[in-house]
Structures are given as C-alpha cells and as structure tokens.
C-alpha cells in the first residue's frame, strides 16, 4: 500500500509540473488566451439562444420544461469544458506524435505512456468556461426552485466524472486509429461533432436504432442527461446512473484494450 501511495504521488507531481509548464506557456499570449474564452462563451450562448427560441414556441419538449433544458445545456457545458481543459488538445495531438515519430520519445520515458499522452497539455482557459456552465446550472436550479442536498451534489460530481471518463475513453479510442492511418484527425474531430447531441433531452429521441446506439454504444445521451436529471430530481430509478457508471467502465476498458493492441502494431516513423 505505501508503494501504491508513492506511485500516485509521483504521477500527481508529474501532472502538476506539466500543468505549471502549460500555464507559463499560455501566459505568453494573454490576448489570445482571453479570446479563446470569448469564443467558447459565444458558442455556449448560441446553444442557450437556440433553446430560448424553441421554448418561445412550446412549453415542453418530451416532458422537459424550459429551465430543465437550460440545466441540461449547463451540465453539458460543464462536462465538455472540463474535457477540453484536460484532454481534447492532447488526444487530437496523438496522430501528430505518431506521424512525426515523437511518440518514441514518450515510450522511452519511465512513466506510463498513456498517462503522458493524455495529460501533457493543460488548457486552463477552459476552466473559466466550465465555471460558466456551472453558473448556468445554479441559475436554472434557482429558477426551478430545487435545492439539491449535499448527497445529491456528491452524486452529481460522481456522474460528471463518469461522463468525463466516457468522452475521454471514446476519443482516445478513436485517436488510436492514427496508428493505422495518418488521416485519423478527421475521425477525431468527427467525434467532436457527436458531442452536439449530448445536450439534448434523451426522451426527445424515439425508441429505435439511433437512441440505442447513442445510449449503449456511444453513450452521448447519458453523459449530460444523467447529471442534469439528478440535480433536477427527475431520476425515476437508479437505472439511469447505474447505466452511466457501467458505460464509463466499459468504455475505459475498451479503450485500454485497443490502446495495447495498437501499440503492438506500432512501427516507428522516425529513424
């Protein structure tokens, strides 16, 4: 057990050092740093505006009221921006690491390679956008007159982590396709496209292939819906959060297996 602890502390130390390095790098371009926060805030505003226009013409969508959907969009923003903060840049960079042969260097480090690839760069600006998402969540809760208990906030944190882990695992898995084709970047950004459906109420989708695929294969309709339902106290049964946690584990295992399989097929690009 003490050995475990020291390993954990070592990895946390490496993570902290990488974060510090990213931060110093980022602060060299302050205006650009602020502009990126503006860009993300604008797109968030756009999502809210879209819902605002829809609810100008209807009182409910598949049983979701206006403020419940705002809550959902806020939760989705929170999770998505955390994903951005820690992982998106790193994962979309994997194909470059392979193409240029830089991966060799990382493979030789005395640290888990997957860990290094995943947390190399830290986008601090997106934290600000994640907090905006959280602020919208709080505002929507006030409008709904719901006050979550401390236990519900803990549950919220857990399901958000599970959602984050789903995004991470799936994008990592897609990024591993770069081991076979240099054009995997398009596929990785394609995943980014799928993100868009996570902020919609799952009940709006008729039972069928589409809904099944995006619940049980690429669980986009769970990652943000479950946290939002939990806070809005709309969870009908524990089945929802149990399936999200199960899918989070399944996606992570699948990505780890595929990663190991891919590494076995890796032939370096550099000399």
């Amino acid at each position: 057990m003490p050995h475990r602890m020291s390993t954990l502390r070592r990895y946390l130390g490496i993570h902290a050092a990488l974060m510090r390095y990213s931060l110093i790098h980022e602060m060299q371009f302050k205006v650009n740093f602020l502009l990126w926060i503006v860009v993300e805030a604008l797109w968030f505003g756009l999502q809210l505006a879209f819902m605002g226009v829809l609810y100008g013409h209807t009182d409910q969508i598949a049983g979701w009221t206006r403020w419940e959907v705002v809550l959902l969009v806020g939760c989705n923003q929170f999770i998505q921006q955390l994903f951005h903060t820690f992982f998106v840049t790193n994962l979309s960079n994997l194909s470059e690491l392979i193409r240029k042969g830089t991966l060799d260097l990382l493979l030789l480090q005395p640290v888990n390679t997957r860990f290094l690839i995943s947390v190399k760069k830290f986008e601090i600006g997106n934290i600000a956008n994640a907090l905006m998402g959280l602020a919208v969540v709080a505002y929507a809760l006030a409008q709904l007159d719901r006050v979550p208990t401390p236990a519900q906030w803990v549950g919220f944190a857990v399901v958000c982590l599970a959602g984050l882990s789903v995004h991470y695992s799936l994008m990592f898995l897609l990024a591993c396709i770069s081991f076979w084709t240099v054009r995997a970047q398009g596929i990785v950004w394609g995943y980014y496209n799928l993100f868009n459906i996570a902020r919609l109420p799952a009940e709006a989708f008729p039972k069928g292939v589409y809904r099944a695929v995006f619940t049980w294969v690429l669980p986009m309709l769970l990652v943000s819906n479950v946290p939002a339902k939990l806070l809005a106290q709309r969870l009908a049964s524990p089945w929802d959060w149990v399936s999200l946690l199960a899918m989070a584990v399944a996606c992570f295992v699948a990505s780890e297996l595929f990663w190991r399989f891919s590494l076995r097929h890796y032939t370096s690009a550099s000399a």
Binding site: I61, I197, E203, A204
Partner: peptide, 12 residues
C-alpha cells in the same frame, strides 16, 4: 448525426 438529432427534437 447532429442533423438527425435536430430533426428528432423538432418532431418531439
């Protein structure tokens, strides 16, 4: 994929 989602939303 997102287009289909938008259409489902409108149908709902």
């Amino acid at each position: 994929v997102p287009l289909t989602a938008t259409l489902f939303l409108w149908e709902a």
